[in-house]
Design a protein around this nucleic acid. Structure first.
Lengths: 345, 345
DNA sequence: GTGAAAGCGCTAACAT
DNA sequence: ATGTTAGCGCTTTCAC
């Protein structure tokens, strides 16, 4: 491997001059600069970023830490974060936590954070104890649907409100027994499933309907296949179900298939609403009504907070933001019936 | 930031002993080890991986370089690579190339490679000139549907054969005018679109049908929305089209929607086949017939090749592998009609 | 505008 | 089993 010293020798200058030419941190005369660049080209030199980062204490890159690579939401998130960080001259890399054996955040995984100038950390499914171990670390902004220690900047979706909107919409369009797919019984946790279940419950209260806990369908994994099978089974077991609120769009796409498997029809027999407003939802059949969590808003704020914390004077107080949500109405729910009250089933 | 020297002082041992305890590279007595670990805990010490990597010349991590974060295929790829590498004790990080301004591989992007022990590089859309600049680099395995310099290990899908299978299947089930969505006119390039167009052409020849170049629909971007709009327009312009071979499943999902938009029906009026066999394809409606490119086979081989090249004696000759493909038949193509020849339209 | 010296935090290599 | 020395390749700092 060619080193900067070799380039300096070839160009007949000192290493500092080479360094200055390459980093642009100090002015160098055009002639010297050209000599250096020629040597760089001739020797196929490439800076050793590990050495540069060690010495300078910065890396110019930011990590996005997600639980899984293969969920559409995180891919979309990565693309958004990369676009925003690119505008600030920073490189983004994505790392996955769930790779680690027990899903536990290993000491090594924590140490890896120091290779970045900052990190955006998606914390769905992270334990409280793990979050505590992220102290004394690089600037971090947390993302994701759970309570976190107050010392962290945190941006989350409007989970409760979004779920309430979704379920209220189905009530308004005539559903009376709305299954929540991927919900959570009991009130202990503060995770995404639990928050969205709160919204589901809230919609019942607002509509003056009683909550039937048998309509809470817990799912071991929030993916399409899992959702499809579980929802088909639930519909077979309880024919009175006339709506499905899926806690994610992945599950909702599974729900569309599950309703078909059960021999029923969307939206005539069963309305379906998802959460995330993924691009795919606009193109499946029937097109998916979904809660838009304002992903751009979330990323913009996360990037702004991280940038602030990586800057000169980091803000004293951490911010805790909740994104605005809105319902995007498509074909998986029924249109308003003009001049009619709520539909009777 | 706590350093190893401080830990050594606190524990009353030398830095080498601390290093040995943490890295496990040399035996340390249990008592000493415990003293060190106590100091590590008390001081919240975390190794500086940048320093370790610089000194040791290794990082224990491998990069997966993809053109875009937000394509389902790359997410699935990342998850597979991470699983395989995890088994070998290596961390995987994903980087995105297209972030760079003109999509050009910047000098910095190339320099970043040296921070990893090796890289798996998805080269769809990379120019020949860019590939040439990856020489003198870390061990690299290329992935993706285009010709690459012979010196690189390369694993690609069976593009031509897969496309041929897809189109032959539609011919066999009665289609006669099969649009290729995301294809490429002219024979210059060796990219994915071009290779799959070759398979489409080959299927025509095998079936004794003449190729109609007007059935080649080029797409600026291979995504769902783009595919939907372009295919709907194509069907409206040419009602004789009775099949769509979409070069990716993303485009195929768009095709399902596009056919609906055009007021026609899948598979009765228009059959649709995709390529990639993404999980989502099994759950959309109608369920998508697709070419399975053997993603696990691809990843297993890429990881094996990379591991070999990162090992003691790297193999002299680069390998160039083509994955086996098979057709996965689902509802977007018509079932065999027993006792009947090809359907007439 | 350019250079010399020092050292970032760690581990390889050589002691003991 | 543990310690000492040197130095990975670069940039910071200070000097001219």
């Amino acid at each position: 491997m060619t080193t900067m010293t070799e380039v300096a020798e070839a160009a007949g200058v000192s290493v500092m001059t080479v360094s200055n030419v390459l980093s642009g941190r100090r002015r160098v005369s055009p002639e010297t600069s050209e000599k250096v660049m020629r040597a760089v080209t001739d020797l196929h030199y490439q800076v050793n970023l590990t050495a540069r980062n060690l010495r300078s204490g910065r890396s110019g890159s930011v990590a996005l830490i997600v639980p899984q690579f293969d969920h559409a939401y995180f891919g979309a998130l990565g693309a958004r974060v990369a676009r925003a960080m690119e505008a600030l001259g920073r490189q983004v890399v994505i790392e996955q936590t769930s790779a680690s054996a027990a899903g536990e955040l290993s000491a090594l995984a924590l140490a890896r954070l120091h290779m970045y100038d900052g990190a955006i950390f998606s914390v769905v499914g992270l334990r409280e104890s793990e979050l505590d171990r992220i102290r004394d670390s690089i600037p971090i902004v947390l993302l994701g649907e759970r309570e976190v220690p107050a010392r962290f900047d945190h941006v989350m979706m409007g989970n409760v409100e979004g779920a309430r909107l979704a379920v209220a919409h189905m009530f308004e369009r005539g559903s009376r027994r709305v299954l929540i797919a991927g919900g959570r019984r009991g009130l202990g946790s503060t995770g995404m499933s639990c928050l969205r279940t709160q919204g589901w419950t809230g919609a019942h209260q607002q509509a003056g309907l009683t909550v039937d806990e048998r309509l809470i369908l817990e799912l071991p994994r929030l993916d399409v296949g899992e959702g499809r099978a579980a929802i088909a089974a639930a519909l077979a077991a309880d024919p009175s179900i006339d709506g499905v609120f899926a806690v994610t769009d992945d599950v909702a796409v599974g729900a569309l298939a599950g309703v078909r498997d059960a021999g029923r029809s969307v939206p005539a027999d069963v309305q379906v609403v998802g959460f995330d407003n993924l691009e795919i939802g606009a193109h499946v059949y029937p097109e998916l009504t979904s809660i838009d969590p304002s992903s751009d808003w979330i990323v913009d704020n996360a990037v702004r907070l991280l940038q602030a914390r990586m800057g000169q004077d980091p803000p004293a107080d951490a911010e805790h933001l909740v994104s605005p949500v809105r319902l995007v109405e498509r074909g998986s729910t029924r249109p308003v019936r003009r001049g009619a009250g709520p539909a009777r089933n």
